[in-house]
């Protein structure tokens, strides 16, 4: 079954950077300090945007949600060593799927529960 093996290796190299196992041997707490500073900064920015009405209310939710996603990325990347593991990092696949399902549940639920689609 050389074809099957090729497909699988292809899949792995596709995600190449993401799926290779690796460990972080940092010499100091710098990643943590940077992560902490960034998360404080982003929280502060979002709060200021809302409190001081710096952006039109129409776009504000999207902007602060974007800042929240950035913060989540910082936690995952700098604190949670997302890529660590022995063997393929299946946790990344799982988290991506979880994210898609979660987003789908929220967006579809809002759409369905609005009871306003189309001509009703």
């Amino acid at each position: 079954m050389p074809h099957a093996r090729k497909t699988e290796r292809g899949l792995l190299s596709l995600g190449g950077l993401l799926l290779l196992p690796r460990f972080e041997h940092s010499s100091g707490p710098w990643p943590q300090i940077v992560g902490y500073a960034l998360s404080l900064l982003l929280t502060l920015a979002a709060t200021l945007l809302v409190v001081h009405h710096l952006i039109a209310p129409l776009y504000l939710p999207a902007v602060i949600l974007f800042l929240a996603v950035l913060q989540a990325g910082i936690q995952l990347g700098l604190f949670m060593h997302l890529r660590e593991g022995v063997g393929p990092s299946w946790q990344i696949v799982a988290l991506v799927l979880a994210g898609i399902v979660a987003l789908g549940i929220v967006i579809f639920s809002i759409w369905i529960m609005a009871f306003k689609s189309g001509v009703s």
């Binding site: 946790q91 799982a94 979660a102 529960m113």
Partner: peptide, 28 residues
């Protein structure tokens, strides 16, 4: 321990969905 860490990641994935349902409820 390797297995347990991967299993725990999957649990977190499951918990993501749990919270997403609660967020959906809140949004509605």
């Amino acid at each position: 321990d390797n297995l347990a860490i991967l299993g725990f990641w999957f649990f977190l994935g499951s918990d993501v969905v749990l919270f997403s349902c609660l967020f959906a409820v809140y949004a509605v």
